[in-house]
Design a binder for these strands. Sequence first.
DNA 1: TTGAAAGCGATACCAT
DNA 2: ATGGTATCGCTTTCAA
Lengths: 340, 340
Amino acid sequence: MENKSQPKRPITSYDVARHAGVSQSAVSRCFKPGASISKATRAKVMKAATLLGYQPNAIAQGLITRRSNLVAVVISSLTNLYYPEVLAELTQRLAVHGVKVLLFSLSHESDVDLVLQQVWGYRVDGAIVAARLSPEQIRDFQKRGVPLVLYNRVEERAPCDSVCCDSAGGERQLVGSLLEAGHHHFGIIAGPVDSYVGEERVRSALECLATAGKRDIPVVRGEFDYQTGRAGFKSLVEQTGGKLDAVICANDLMAIGAVDAARHDFERDVPSEVSVVGFDGVGPATWLSYNLTTIRQPVRRMTEAAVTMLMARIADSSNPPERRLFSGQLLPGSSARFTT
Amino acid sequence: MENKSQPKRPITSYDVARHAGVSQSAVSRCFKPGASISKATRAKVMKAATLLGYQPNAIAQGLITRRSNLVAVVISSLTNLYYPEVLAELTQRLAVHGVKVLLFSLSHESDVDLVLQQVWGYRVDGAIVAARLSPEQIRDFQKRGVPLVLYNRVEERAPCDSVCCDSAGGERQLVGSLLEAGHHHFGIIAGPVDSYVGEERVRSALECLATAGKRDIPVVRGEFDYQTGRAGFKSLVEQTGGKLDAVICANDLMAIGAVDAARHDFERDVPSEVSVVGFDGVGPATWLSYNLTTIRQPVRRMTEAAVTMLMARIADSSNPPERRLFSGQLLPGSSARFTT
DNA sequence: TTGAAAGCGATACCAT
DNA sequence: ATGGTATCGCTTTCAA
């Protein structure tokens, strides 16, 4: 018995047509939602199709239709524990619309231009980008007519659709509570300069503190990860000679690093001796060992909004850019001393 | 001034050809690596191309070439903190080969068949799958001639390329050390039944224990996440009436949950009163608050192997299936009492 | 309802 | 080295 099944060449609609004794057009119609086709032919076709294992070539479809049903998702740092959740949500939601995700992750922010080349090449129906884009790059999307939604980024100089979590509002809650609880010696662990939300959060925190008359706050930079959070805490302690009772971190991962540094490297109790707050509300933030005081981004709603906006713009690109800002939710936690 | 830039229709090679005063074939050749074209024409073409912002239509290329330069990456639970790292590695490495990632994440394992439909439709050049596939599904790949590499899965009944981390070997180290250190009362927090590695790890752990004469080990199931790890610990304590000095978890996240449960829910010291071991070596495992005793999967080498194998099979599908097994590295940590 | 034929935007083979 | 032409697998008029 010859088990030489080598159907290298995928089944085409012609194969199905021949097998079903109908025209190729008929086959095509069977796979198009609102096509006019008789019950009889449809039956014949479907039978042949399933028998042969026929699946319409999405590539060919895309070529003729000019709709690839592909959406590019560009994420700079997948390693940031915040993004897996976002990515999972996005792919799932897009799938509902019959849209597939073409994933691009940047090793360096400088790769953006290379990535965009690919994006143009695949004639994606749209893109969701959580990475820094220059105004020119954004305008490139518009010039090419590729719908774009920025995720947790906005670019003043080139208006376009975006969904964000309100950094300023979040920090205001955090810093406000810290002030109210009587903290005096603040320190900030910022994110990398090229992070929009990172800078936004720090800017806002500093603003709140300034309003309360607190200036010259020491700021150190981290890379949004545990290690640099831990190192950042150390730097702050050194810079302040130990006079430090509140540390504001640009994200949860660094906050967690800071908490561990305080407890294990400096044997300072959190929150009685030093308060630490983060931002994002990632999974580990709620783990018992940390129980971080932070702002939880409404990821579900944000991803839903992003997908909705994108699909809307794909359907009709004429409407004006919209910026949607979601408030985060304060997770009180217990890494900061608050007066309730 | 009319700023009505609405080049809805993307630039094609014909546009470039016309603009450069050459044939469309010439344009095509300019974008093909080893094509024979004169310096002069190439220059003209490239000039026109960059001017118009031309980017070859990858969809059309794929249609005629029968190579989409697309690889499907199927991951069941992106929420498992282990996968973001894998995913980032994979996309980056595939990008090196000029291959783009079509990402599919499953909400339910039952979605696999739907996902596979999409995969067939896009005529991907290959697939890397970290999800449970039935033998029929695997054979479907072979029938359709789509190269496939399983990641941390193997299916005895349908041989195919795969890369795995040695679960048995890892558990042997872990359990061996626990036994050697004189632990007596073991408990296991297993993963979901449909996880290959989960079952493999538990099977192996039980085997090691049996060899040491330890039988009737209590086993509870979790979902590979923090919450169920914590709950699992509680269940074990209840089942054993508190006689428990070593907990073997099928992955790190559950181990972390178990550690927190021990410390915070039961006020038992880890590791002096109870040892906890995990598996994976995810980022949080090394955080100071946990410093988990676990097995670190060599993700870099594994993803590299997966990509290499896939590209090799894409280039030549005739070679026999290969199974590559990587040893994990013991991270001693301090969540388990070991004799050194 | 159905089939024939014209593209979609590239590649590849063929003469020139 | 260059241009003409068939082709990839589908959707979409257009007649019948």
